[in-house]
Structure formats: C-alpha cells, structure tokens
C-alpha cells in the first residue's frame, strides 16, 4: 500500500472499540491457553481408574460426560465413584472404579448405562458380557501362587466368564522336577470384560498379582504386516498360486536325486581315505 497515512485521527469511539476488542481477544487468548493446559492435564487418567461399562474412548468420553453422577447413583454395588479433585487423578467429577476396591458386578440390566443421559456410556451395550472396561493382566508372575506351582485358582474361580475369560493352562513344573504341573491363570482379552473381580479377590496382600488395565494400556495393535498363515481364511498370499514343482534329477540341488551324484555333482570335500598315521 503506497497511499499516505491519513492525517485525520481515528474516530474516538471506533478507536475505543478496536482497543477494547483487542484487549478482550488478548485476554481470551491468555486465559484460553491456561484453560487448555488444565484441560490437557485433566486427560491424564491413572491406570487403575477404570471407566464404567460402555464408556466411550477416553477422548470422546470427556466431550460427552457432563459429570452428573447418575451412573454412580444407579450402581447397586457402590462400585462407581466420581473422581475428586486432587485425590483420584481422573478428570474431576468423572465416574470410574478401582477394581481392587470394589469391582464391577456386571449387572445384567447395566443400570449405569441406562442412567447416563448423554450417551457417554454407550446405550449400544446391551449385553454386559460385551463390555470392555479393560482387560485383566497377570502382572506379577513372580508372586502369583498359581505361577509358583500352587493351587490358588481364586481369580479363575471368581471370573464371571470362567473358562472363557480366564483359563488355567497346564505346563510342567520344573521346580519339582516335572512331577507336578503349573496351572497358569491365562486371560483371554477377547472375552474379558474388565470387571475386576479377579483383581479384587487375589489373595496376595496389598497389590493384586492380576490387575485390570484399560484397553489402551493392556493391548497392543496387531502387526498388520505379519500374516498368521495358520488361521483359517488367512492365506499367506492372497490368491492360490501354483508354483512349478521341482522335478528331481541332474542339475538340481536335490540330494536325493535318483541315480545318486552321477552326472553333474561331486562333493567338494571328502573324508580322507586310507591309513591313518600312527
């Protein structure tokens, strides 16, 4: 712009308006940055805080949950609590449970999901066995009694989906020279709802050897570039291809070729023959 600056001063009202707006916007930007920091901070949810059944993924959950606590009120077992500021770690006022404290009893009518007015707990969850609050992980195999070769089995026995979500896998117990078996509690994440009854009932003092972890921590992404050729309908190559059969015969590297090594092949090294020096 090459036009000369106007010498006439700006209309005071207009000037005032622009100044006020600029100040307001600047204040907003500062306050907004502070608020955004706090919001970001509130996203950090501790590993042992498990969301109720049907809870949306954490990012969506914080957009949907209005923190009214109606799920907490309708929980018949007082499992769910609202996070308290500076005490519980999860975003203030959002519902969670600590499985070691009180686990989810997996009510068939899922009252917490029914109570949620916003859909932060997804009404699409109608069968509690489909819930994925998290998944149990046998996290301390050095102190788990079953892993030591004893028969505790409590986590397995209390599992609402016994023999599906937790199975006991047998292996030979080297400690007793193979005379006994280890009955290893083994969690199957495709069935485990993350209710936490196993964590609650673990007989070890203080911490549990088996813990419910949020799915985002407990499960890795499968490696798409490795194909599981042994699974049905999952061939290593997409189309069935017919490779040419290798016919045995001279000129191939087939050591069992009929007719022995005659023809093109002689081993480069041969055992020495004759007398061995004394």
């Amino acid at each position: 712009m090459s036009a000369p600056m106007p010498t006439k001063p700006m209309d005071p009202a207009r000037r005032r308006f622009l100044q006020d707006t600029a100040r307001g916007v600047a204040g907003c930007a500062l306050a907004g940055a502070g608020l955004a920091y706090l919001v970001q901070d509130a996203r950090a949810i501790p590993a042992r805080a498990i969301r109720p059944p049907g809870a949306l993924a954490e990012d969506d959950f914080l957009a949907a949950c209005i923190r009214c606590g109606l799920c907490v009120r309708d929980c018949p077992y007082d499992t769910l609590v609202l996070a308290e500021l500076g005490v519980d770690g999860a975003a203030t006022g959002t519902p969670f449970f600590d499985a070691r404290d009180i686990p989810c009893e997996m009510c068939e009518d899922i009252p917490c999901v029914v109570a949620c007015p916003t859909g932060a707990l997804d009404k699409g969850l109608t069968n509690i066995d489909d819930a994925r609050m998290g998944t149990a992980v046998l996290i301390d195999q050095e102190n788990c009694l079953n892993a030591l070769g004893l028969r505790c089995d409590v986590c397995y026995r209390v599992c609402p989906l016994i023999d599906e979500a937790i199975t006991l896998e047998l292996s030979s117990n080297a400690t007793s020279g193979g005379h006994h078996a280890i009955f290893m509690p083994t969690v199957h994440a495709d069935k485990c709802t993350g209710c936490g009854k196993c964590e609650k009932s673990c007989v070890l003092p203080e911490e549990s050897a088996i813990k419910v972890l949020p799915m985002r921590m407990a499960s890795a992404q499968s490696a798409e570039h490795y194909r599981r050729g042994w699974e049905e309908n999952n061939p290593l190559v997409d189309q069935i291809i017919d490779l040419p059969d290798r016919l045995p015969g001279p000129g191939t590297d087939n050591l069992v070729a009929p007719g022995g090594y005659e023809g093109g092949f002689k081993p480069t090294f041969q055992l020495p023959t004759g007398e061995v020096g004394q």
Partner: peptide, 11 residues
C-alpha cells in the same frame, strides 16, 4: 471445540 472436552468443567 479445540480440545474436544467440556472445558469449563475443569474449573
């Protein structure tokens, strides 16, 4: 809108 959370409830 930017953070995808109910922002004021943090405060």
């Amino acid at each position: 809108a930017l953070s995808g959370t109910i922002a004021w409830e943090v405060i």
